[in-house]
Design a protein around this nucleic acid. Structure first.
Lengths: 224, 224
DNA sequence: ACCAAATCGTATGCTTTCCGAAAGGACACG
DNA sequence: CGTGTCCTTTCGGAAAGCATACGATTTGGT
């Protein structure tokens, strides 16, 4: 899940970004409206969190631009004021939400999940299960056949991605985009290495391998 | 949820009222005991926050009046003094609480929610138990395997937070937000230090460690 | 009111753990 | 059989976490 945060206050920005990363999202950040617009147009985000008060292109204008260009990602608006401005109300579609500062992070997270659920029409499960492989998103635990596996952050995200696409191949580019910052261009074989590391933990001591390579395309997770 | 604040110090009063409003409560304010009494008798509040030192009718007398008229709303008493006065103790019912100034806003909010939960007959456990670890919310005592542990206020809160989320990781940002005030400057390692201190008391002399680190995310409490 | 003790945020090094980079071998496919 | 893709291992810098020390502030007792 990729989230764009458009917020100029460095303190709040850092705070929110840090929290979202810890919650397992891929997060990009813009500290003004113009950069925000460019990013949204160039990368596929699942959600945007936009402050109203921005230098240059304001939050409202930004949203207006997006809507007029038919970019329909759900938006959470951050505002310092308590009451909902009419202009804000006008811009918000059904898939949007509104929060006043200060807010509790837990509340922000709840709303994010609600919005994503609504916009994708999918009930977000707390655990992913593929055959004997179980990944618990809440406790961040991974088990294969009763055995607990200690994955690190990146490996965990990769496995999550693979499990959400059981049977469907996931391309290397896809993995790159989902797990690393958008403008990260590795000249190296990071993805290969990551897959290798994940395999060592998931497949190595099992006869039935679950991660398969599709040459020239990417990888698939298959239940044996 | 309607809350009445009876407080004559304008600075503290504004501070608390603002915070409560932002937390989503409807707040009324009286700056002396007599007005406080009239308001309580004329409007149905879910909770009252009453300062002890008041001009005119004092906080204690106000509570006494309320109780003798069978107005049974839960009360949070604010006092400048550290020790619990006997007269206060006598007036407090089960549904009341007590705080000394200065206090952390976050703590006030926690107590408000606890009180409202209690008074609305949602069962609120008085003690949290995770395996051999017992935390008593009322007496504020913590024991692990019969052994009594002396925790600081912050350590206590942290342990409470962890115990309420057994098995679920609690992110550092979450801890910051819950134990300190909103967007407290996270440039330091307060959380690390606090966790370290708590560990020394909870885990240090035990073989089964209960607090585990999840790199890049936060901490979990696990029963061994 | 004063002093000792306790508390708690900050600063600072140390240790551990990640994870990207690189390189060479293995394998698949034409 | 040759080329290109993929796998695996190793290495080192960087980051995250841990522990300790210090000092400002608060607390509590005389």
């Amino acid at each position: 899940m990729r989230i764009l945060v458009v917020e100029d206050d460095p303190k709040i920005g850092r705070f929110v970004i840090e929290a979202l990363k810890q919650a397992g999202f891929a997060v990009d950040h813009a500290d003004n409206g113009d950069d925000g617009l460019h990013l949204t147009l160039s990368a596929p985000y699942d959600l945007a969190i936009i402050d109203i008060m921005l230098p240059g292109l304001g939050g409202l204008e930004l949203i207006g631009e997006l809507r007029s260009r038919k970019v329909m990602i759900p938006v959470i608006i951050l505002s310092a004021r308590r009451s909902v401005d009419d202009r804000i109300a006008g811009l918000l579609r059904g898939g949007d939400d509104y929060m006043t500062k200060p807010f509790y992070l837990s509340e922000l997270l709840v709303r994010i999940h609600a919005l994503i659920r609504r916009s994708t029409n999918v009930v977000e499960p707390t655990r992913l299960i593929v055959n004997e492989l179980v990944l618990d998103l809440q406790s961040r635990e991974v088990r294969r056949g009763g055995q607990n596996l200690a994955l690190q952050a990146r490996e965990f995200s990769l496995l999550e991605l693979l499990m959400r696409n059981v049977g469907r191949p996931v391309s290397k580019t896809m993995i790159l985009e989902r797990l690393w910052d958008y403008n990260f261009d590795p000249q190296t074989n990071v993805v290969d290495v990551l897959v290798c590391r994940l395999r060592n933990k998931i497949d190595h001591e099992f006869t039935n391998k679950m991660i398969h390579t599709i040459r020239g395309v990417g990888y698939v997770l298959k239940s044996p």
